[in-house]
């Protein structure tokens, strides 16, 4: 019967809409709200779908997550911000398109050009090797090997010039070790090649780690936060090895902060913020996010500048690690 009721309300609204009353902001939202997601389908998209679904429950509309990958996430951000500023399009503001790409000079915006809703999730990562490696047993031994064999180590950070690549390059630079990064579009393939010995080490996020703990020897957790260390069952972190990345807090990890166009009316943005806060507070949502290795975040829109500002500043200050790696590799060939 629901079906027929929908048809009836549908027809009634057709009549109303045709008369020309469609600017009723008081009734926001009255249709589907789309979340533009900067990556292809995978764990990150599943997490965004979880939040979107819960948020959709709060608002009473569908909230599909639309995957628009390309150019390290900038395609999605451009797409989302080209849409009308009516609150019907939300951008899943991952650090790569939101902060890192502008820092690297590949995008012409600033994180403060947008209206924040709320912080969503973060995702710490580590440098992992395989179990059964005979050449070294910890990070410092691997670095010693790397110093003795410049340019011979093979690793993957997922895609090139992403945040893990930047952070790993910085860590290697602090040991003066040059290694070749091999880009992989799917984490799974990099992990497979790590396990089979084709790669020497790779970036391993919490999700990869909990899927098959016994396969990895986590060499270095790239965060100084205790929570991240705990996620990797106490593997050594950058404080233990006194590696100075010049990064703290959220800066060395992946995270997303949902944002909308800066011209979005405040009452609309507030409705979205309330719904997102309610969605993020739901225990079932938090549990589901944690189950895939992500950490739910609780900062609201008023803390956006305080949290994202230092990240942007720190990433800006360390951009030379990638450049250094390319130059050193060039010298070897």
């Amino acid at each position: 019967m629901k079906f027929f009721r929908k048809i009836r309300t549908g027809l009634a609204t057709v009549a109303i809409v045709t008369i020309g009353a469609n600017a009723a902001l008081a009734d926001f939202p009255e249709r589907t709200i789309e979340i533009i997601h900067p990556w292809g389908p995978g764990k990150a998209m599943a997490v965004s779908q979880l939040i979107a679904q819960a948020m959709g429950d709060e608002l009473g509309v569908d909230m599909p997550v639309i995957s628009t990958p390309g150019a390290a996430g900038t395609k999605a951000q451009i797409t989302a911000m080209a849409r009308p500023a009516d609150g019907y399009t939300i951008f899943d503001g991952y650090v790569a398109p939101l902060v890192l790409q502008p820092v690297l000079g590949n995008a012409d915006w600033n994180y403060s050009d947008f209206k924040p809703l709320q912080a969503a999730v973060s995702n710490a990562f580590s440098i992992g090797g395989r179990i059964g490696e005979t050449r070294w047993s910890n990070f410092e031994e691997m670095m010693a090997y790397g110093q003795a064999h410049p340019g011979k180590l093979r690793y993957s950070s997922g895609s090139r010039n992403n945040l893990p690549h930047m952070v790993i390059a910085k860590a290697l630079q602090s040991y003066n070790v040059v290694a070749q990064n091999i880009p992989y579009s799917q984490d799974g393939n990099a992990i497979k090649d790590l396990k089979s010995g084709v790669l020497d080490f790779a970036f391993v996020n919490v999700g990869n780690y909990i899927q098959d703990k016994s396969a990895f020897n986590i060499l270095l957790v790239l965060s100084e936060l205790d929570g991240a260390k705990a996620s990797y069952d106490g593997a050594p972190n950058i404080i233990d090895l006194s590696v100075d990345l010049g990064l703290s807090g959220l800066a060395p990890m992946g995270w997303t902060w949902w944002i909308v166009n800066a011209d979005t009316p405040d009452d609309v943005a507030d409705k979205l913020r309330d719904a997102m806060a309610a969605a993020m507070a739901r225990p079932d949502v938090r549990a589901a996010i944690e189950a895939v290795g992500f950490v739910p975040l609780d900062w609201n829109h008023s803390e956006y500048n305080d949290i994202v500002g230092p990240v942007a500043a720190q990433l800006g200050a360390m951009g030379n690690a990638l450049k250094w790696e390319v130059e050193e590799l060039g010298k070897l060939n």
Binding site: G70, A71, A72, S159, R160, N161, P183, S185
Partner: peptide, 10 residues
């Protein structure tokens, strides 16, 4: 066509 995964060029 698109972003080259290796060189990150377009």
């Amino acid at each position: 066509i698109g972003t080259d995964e290796f060189s990150t060029g377009y």
